[in-house]
Design a binder for these strands. Structure first.
Length: 193
DNA sequence: GACCAGGCACATC
DNA sequence: GATGTGCATGGT
């Protein structure tokens, strides 16, 4: 689903609320498709996604991704989804502006592959519980989940959604403030490790 | 008005 | 290989 892939890039270090405004503007402009977006000038795209912040950089990144889609898959998300996950992930990571989290979001939410997405919330929650180190690498954290959970797209999708939900409610300033709503997930977190 | 948000590339040491 | 910095808007 192209919209989710665009969202994955726009949400880089940005709240989803602001991303929605940008997505709406793309929808209204009728350019929320690989073909429509490719027709745009980068500057025009940039002004449409302004509310999502870092708009000049993100316009470049979106264009790089759309070019990638056209150069390799005739602009078809479906065709991209047919490629084996590991190969696709490697290729996505080579696109400028797509790092591990964005690549994995595209794989999970865009083409429904069972890939676990690690984000700031995941790190914050699980490191605060002493389950991972604060400076654990992306790959390390991902492997932790990947090795202990069944590879099920729906499960990963839901699990990530729950992490985001808890993460948002989580106190950001004082790691040990004691009022964070985390007690409930502690058991489930430990169970998978 | 300060601080933060579901990253990433690039420069520098 | 680790660490620092720029990118920018909108909500609290």
């Amino acid at each position: 689903m192209f919209e989710m892939m665009v969202g994955a890039i726009l949400t880089q270090n940005t709240s989803w609320r602001n991303v929605e405004k940008a997505i709406d503007s793309l929808k209204r402009g009728g350019v929320l498709t690989p073909g429509g977006m490719r027709q745009l000038k980068t500057s025009a795209l940039a002004s449409m996604i302004r509310p999502s912040g870092y708009y000049r950089i993100k316009a470049d990144r979106l264009m790089a991704f759309v070019d990638f889609l056209w150069e390799n898959y005739e602009g078809k998300v479906k065709k991209m989804g047919k490629e084996p996950v590991n190969e696709l992930r490697e290729r996505l990571l080579k696109v400028k502006g797509i790092g591990p989290e964005t690549a994995d979001s595209i794989l999970l939410y865009g083409v429904r592959k069972p890939v676990f997405v690690v984000d700031a919330y995941t790190k914050r929650i699980f490191s605060r519980h002493g389950i991972i180190s604060e400076k654990a690498s992306y790959d390390h954290i991902q492997r932790l989940f990947s090795d202990h959970l069944p590879h099920d797209e729906k499960l990963f999708n839901e699990y990530h959604a729950l992490i985001v939900q808890v993460g948002k409610a989580l106190c950001k300033k004082t790691p040990k403030c004691g009022i964070c709503p985390l007690k409930g997930i502690e058991q489930s977190a430990k169970r998978i490790v």
